[in-house]
């Protein structure tokens, strides 16, 4: 039996997330993946921003830091620069990481600093009541899109790939075992890793879009999910609106802090 309690601050449970919230499914998948790494708990640093996703850090019995909206990645960058031996994991959301924190997200990916970013994508601002986010699908409803949403949405995987992340994957709460697997692969990568996990917010998103229960919403996610391999043989039109899952990049490129130490520290110490 898997011992979740080992990794939890049990006195903080039950957590604040709504009944059936996918965030809990992701948190559990992340815990199982972290467990596979065999890290000392003292060596793990969990950093989050603001929003529903970002409450995750408070439940984890690691070093934990709940920062400002959008800024988890730069806080984590400073921690990694100061103590590279820490295993730094960022828990963030679609709004936190791709709206207010979008700039930090792409630049950390560009640097290839060794952070594992687990991005809970529930397509909405849940904590503030259901306003549309950069990933709310076009045509759906949000509290700030009462007539239907008109913005095209971000493809977070494409964003991370374009910015230079060395590990990029997408999974969903409809497939917890696969999610665990890709998070584990991301944790293993020495560099910037992005794992987008599509999650259900039936309370703030589903109820406005004819999906009242967590089960209905998870099944809606499943019905739109297509593996990367399958998607490759699909026409562009068929891929429209689909959630393509799998590992999109897994490669080795020099890690930022290691490069700094290799090139800058050594040169500086040798005299300028």
């Amino acid at each position: 039996m898997f011992d979740y309690a080992e990794y939890l601050r049990l006195d903080k449970l039950p957590h604040i997330w709504c009944y059936g919230c996918g965030n809990g499914i992701i948190l559990k998948g992340a815990i199982r993946a972290i467990d596979k790494m065999g890290w000392e708990k003292d060596s793990v640093m969990a950093v989050s921003g603001i929003g529903c996703s970002s409450r995750a850090t408070g439940y984890l019995d690691f070093n934990s830091l709940h920062t400002l909206h959008g800024r988890a990645i730069p806080f984590a960058t400073g921690i990694k620069m100061a103590k590279p031996e820490l295993n730094v994991i960022v828990f963030t959301g679609d709004g936190d990481a791709t709206a207010i924190g979008g700039n930090h997200f792409i630049h950390a990916a560009r640097r290839n600093i060794n952070l594992t970013v687990i991005l809970f994508n529930n397509n909405i601002y849940g904590m503030t009541g259901g306003q549309y986010s950069p990933t709310t699908p076009k045509g759906y409803f949000a509290s700030t899109a009462p007539y239907g949403h008109i913005d095209p949405s971000f493809d977070i995987v494409e964003l991370a790939l374009g910015a230079g992340a060395t590990f990029v994957a997408r999974s969903t709460v409809a497939n917890p075992r696969e999610m665990e697997k890709v998070i584990h692969e991301g944790l293993k990568n020495k560099g910037f890793s992005l794992i987008e996990v599509v999650s259900n917010c039936h309370e703030r998103f589903g109820k406005r879009n004819k999906m009242k229960s967590p089960y209905e919403m998870i099944e809606w996610i499943r019905s739109r999910s297509v593996s990367k391999v399958k998607a490759e043989s699909m026409e562009a039109e068929e891929r429209e609106g689909k959630i393509i899952t799998g590992i999109f990049r897994q490669e080795t490129r020099p890690e930022y802090v290691e490069t700094y130490d290799e090139l800058v520290l050594k040169k500086a110490r040798g005299g300028i």
């Binding site: 960058t77 400073g78 100061a82 630049h107």
Partner: peptide, 24 residues
């Protein structure tokens, strides 16, 4: 020690807060 030029001032101050919490 280490230096980084961040992407903006918000990231700059966030990074130094993180580094300070980690002991620097």
């Amino acid at each position: 020690g280490r230096f980084i030029q961040m992407e903006d001032e918000i990231a700059s101050i966030a990074s130094i807060i993180g580094a300070s919490l980690a002991g620097s």
